[in-house]
């Protein structure tokens, strides 16, 4: 688990300290990617969104009034940008892109299949469930960090994670057994 970033780093970044800005980018680009992925469900598009959102946030850091709540401020911007992009596209186009992006981005066939199954299984969750399970299981965020950043209680975060994992396992089992969950 990454150590929590002290608010002083945000303050230094707001004053133009390049090292502090780099620390913020390195610490939060991945969570930004995961939040974007939870909304658009396309890895390649989530990468672009994370890059654009984080770079934009770094250029307007003075707008972050509460450095202690930087993570929530940043991830809200990522989520909003991703939702806007999602709304601008048709679902049919998104699915076609999903298959293409997954195939282009993977190294081998097994990885392609796994990737497609995970993306298809994630479709069975709500956006909030996806954010919680991805931040917890991929980024190893604690429930306290998730609760602060997503504006929920720790108890709620635990419950959402548990429900999300059960739904994911059920969907992955269905897909493994040759289910038609790909849509």
């Amino acid at each position: 688990m990454a150590a929590p970033l002290p608010p002083e780093v945000v303050l230094r970044a707001q004053q133009g300290d390049r090292a502090a800005i780099e620390a913020l980018v390195r610490r939060f680009l991945r969570p930004a990617y995961l939040v974007a992925l939870s909304v658009v469900r396309l890895p390649a598009e989530a990468e672009d969104l994370a890059q654009e959102s984080v770079a934009s946030a770094m250029r307007q850091l003075e707008a972050c009034r509460e450095p202690a709540r930087f993570a929530g401020w940043l991830l809200t911007q990522v989520r909003n940008r991703a939702l806007n992009q999602l709304a601008a596209r048709g679902v049919r186009q998104r699915h076609a892109d999903s298959v293409q992006a997954a195939e282009q981005g993977a190294d081998d066939l097994e990885r392609v299949v796994l990737r497609q199954q995970l993306l298809a299984a994630l479709e069975a969750l709500t956006a909030q469930q996806r954010e919680v399970v991805l931040l917890h299981d991929m980024e190893s965020w604690t429930h306290a960090e998730i609760a602060t950043s997503l504006g929920m209680s720790e108890v709620n975060s635990r419950q959402v994670l548990s429900v999300a994992r059960k739904a994911l396992r059920a969907k992955l089992t269905e897909l493994d057994n040759g289910g038609t969950g790909h849509g």
């Binding site: 990468e47 654009e52 984080v54 995970l118 993306l119 548990s162 994992r165």
Partner: peptide
């Protein structure tokens, strides 16, 4: 449910990730 889901297939390869970080840093200049 306490067991983590294995999302490794969704991981961005390290080299590509570092390139993404560098591009983000370049675009972060005010």
């Amino acid at each position: 449910d306490d067991e983590r889901i294995n999302f490794s297939a969704l991981e961005v390869p390290a080299g590509r990730w570092e390139a993404l970080v560098q591009r983000t840093l370049e675009r972060s200049r005010p």
